[in-house]
Computed example of a mutant assay.
Amino acid sequence: MLSTEETDRIIEMAWEDRTPFDAIKIQFGLSERQVIELMRNNLQRKSWERWRTRVQGRKTKHVAQRVEEVDRFKCTRQRVISSNRIAKRVNKKSL
């Protein structure tokens, strides 16, 4: 069973263009099929349909289909992830 924070992070990673499903598998142990089910169960219908349309056939979401120039799991603006664990999040209320 995933925590709310883990589910939120997986959804963020699934929406990111440069984060492949393999990165989610490494960090959370979920297959591509499980990520699709998680997205279906946690997004509104239209949001899920938009995400599926966006992800289907996207080469950056599948490591085996990537071009050599794309060599990282995460966007440079993304928070640091260390030891395959979610970095501590800043409490937005304290900002």
Rank of each mutant, 00 (worst) to 15 (best):
G57P: 01
E68D: 09
H62S: 00
D71G: 14
Q44N: 05
A87D: 00
T53M: 09
C75G: 00
S47I: 06
R89E: 07
R89L: 10
Q65F: 12
A87T: 07
N42S: 10
V35D: 01
R58A: 14
I81T: 03
F28Y: 15
R50A: 12
S83N: 14
T60N: 00
K46Y: 15
V90A: 02
R89T: 06
W51G: 04
T76G: 00
G57M: 05
D71F: 12
L30P: 00
T76R: 04
R40C: 03
A64F: 05
T60W: 02
C75V: 00
V80G: 00
E69F: 12
M39N: 05
N41C: 10
V90D: 00
V80H: 07
I36S: 02
Q34Y: 03
V55A: 15
V63P: 02
I81K: 06
V55K: 13
W48Y: 15
T53L: 13
W48V: 06
D71L: 07
T53A: 11
M39W: 07
V35A: 05
Q27N: 10
R79V: 04
H62A: 00
V55Q: 10
Q27F: 08
R58Y: 12
W48Q: 06
I81L: 05
H62V: 09
K74Y: 11
Q65S: 03
A87R: 07
T76K: 05
L38M: 13
V55G: 03
R45T: 11
E32N: 03
I26W: 06
R89K: 12
Q34H: 09
F73Q: 04
V35R: 02
S82Q: 11
M39T: 06
R54D: 14
I26S: 08
T76C: 03
R89D: 01
L43M: 15
W48C: 13
R52H: 14
E49I: 14
M39S: 05
V67A: 08
E37Q: 11
N41I: 07
V80A: 07
R72Y: 08
E49Q: 13
N42G: 01
K59Q: 07
K59F: 13
A87V: 01
N84D: 04
Q34A: 13
E37T: 11
S31P: 02
L43Q: 12
Q56F: 14
R89C: 01
K59S: 07
K59N: 07
I86Q: 05
